[in-house]
Design a protein around this nucleic acid. Sequence first.
DNA 1: TAAAATTTTTAGATTAGTCTAAAAAACAGT
DNA 2: ACTGTTTTTTAGACTAATCTAAAAATTTTA
Lengths: 219, 219
Amino acid sequence: MLSYTEENYLKSIYKILSFDHKTASTNAISKAIQTSAASVTDMLKRLAEKELIHYEKYKGVTLTVRGERIATSLIRKHRLWEVFLVDKLNFSWDEVHDIAEELEHIKSNELINRLDNYLGHPKFDPHGDPIPDENGHFTLRHQICLVEMDAGESGVIVGVLEHSTPFLQYLDRLKLKLGVNIKVIEKFEYDESIKIIIDDREEQILTQKVVQNLLVQKA
Amino acid sequence: MLSYTEENYLKSIYKILSFDHKTASTNAISKAIQTSAASVTDMLKRLAEKELIHYEKYKGVTLTVRGERIATSLIRKHRLWEVFLVDKLNFSWDEVHDIAEELEHIKSNELINRLDNYLGHPKFDPHGDPIPDENGHFTLRHQICLVEMDAGESGVIVGVLEHSTPFLQYLDRLKLKLGVNIKVIEKFEYDESIKIIIDDREEQILTQKVVQNLLVQKA
DNA sequence: TAAAATTTTTAGATTAGTCTAAAAAACAGT
DNA sequence: ACTGTTTTTTAGACTAATCTAAAAATTTTA
C-alpha cells in the first residue's frame, strides 16, 4: 500500500518520462512537485527500495513495470473523475483539475471500474487527453499540433497541450472547444499568428501561443 | 486546513457525543479510532489548541461550534457519497462504507453541493441515516426501534442501528430492506424474538439481535 | 582539460502522528 | 475514608516526509 505522497512522485516521474526525457532527474522532479531536491533524493531511495523505480546515484530514474502500472492507474483515475465532474456535475473544463487530483487517490478498483462503466467507457477526458484502460493502454489518435497545419487545411480540435485555467478560459472566450471544426485560412509569418474559420461560420485570428497549444485531427 | 487524521478525530468525537454521552472520554475515542490512549491525549491537545474541542485534563472533551461544523460537514459528505455509490454506481448498501470513508475527505464545497444537487437533495443515506444540510441540520423523523413495537402494530423499516457488512447482508437474506412494510404478529418473551409479516405476504421470525437493530416508522 | 557552474547527495534537524511503559489522577467498593 | 482498579497523562522513542546548509559528483565552458 502506497502513501499519497509516494503516488504523487510516481505520477510525476511518469509525466516527465513521457514528455521527452530518457530519465527523470532529481531536479526535474523537485520542480514538478515543488519540494527540495534533498527531499526528492530521500524519496527516490525509498521508491527504489520498494522496486517502483530504477535508481542509480546521480543518474536520474526510470519506472519499473510495477511503478508504471501504478502511475497509469493514477492517470486513469484522474481522467475518469474529470469526465465525471464535467459530464455529470456540470463543472467546466478549467475547474476540475485540482478536485481530480484528490479523487485520484481513492483506493478501490471496484469503484473506478464502476465509474468507468457509468460514464460509458470514455476514451478521452474533458481536455482531450487519452484515458488508459485497466491494463494501462492508451487509445492512440492521429493528431497534430495546429502549428503544423498549412493554409487551406481543415480539421477538428481534439486536445490541448496546456491545461492552465487561464488558457482554458481564454479558449472558451474564443469559442474554441473540443469538437469544433476549424479551417486554416491564412498563416502570417510575421508574428506566427494564423487566421482560421470556426465551424464554417466565424473567422478568428489566433496568436502563436494559442496555435502552439492546440491539437487537431486533420479532416 | 485540517489533516485527514484531525478530521477523523472530530468525526469520532461527534459520534460518541451524539450517541448518549455528555463528554467523549479519551478511552472511548481511542477505542473508536483504534489508537492508543496516549496518542489520543496528544491529539486532543492539538485539537484544543486549534479551538476545535473543549478539553480539560481528565474530564473528557466536547466539540466547539467550529469543531461541530466540521464534523457534520464530514458526515454530510460521507452520506452523500454513499447515496452516489448506491444510486448511481449500483453498489449494495453493505459495500459503501469504506469507500465513503475516503471520499468524505475530499475538500471542495462546490463539489459536494453539486453532488447533492445531482442526487436530488436526498435527506437520508442508503442505511436510512439522515444527511445534514449545508448548515449541519438533520431532518428529523418519527422512528422507533422495532423492540418497542407491540403485537398487532405495523410500520415501515426506515433505518438500522448496526452498519456492519454481515448484519446488512443478513438483512438482505431476510428480504428486509428500507421501505418494506412489516407487521408484528407475535412477541416471544422466552428469547425476545418476534414474528412479523413482510409486505403482507411473508412471515418471518426475527431474533432479538435483529429486532434491536431495526428502526421503524409506525403506520 | 582545468576551472566554473550546476546538479545531486549527505548530514542534521523538524513536524505530525504514532507507540510502550510508567506515573498520576479519578473512581469504586467495602 | 482507605485501598484497589481503571482511566488518563507524561516521558521518551520511532517513522514518514519535509527542510537548510554543506559536501560531492557531474556537466559546461573557456
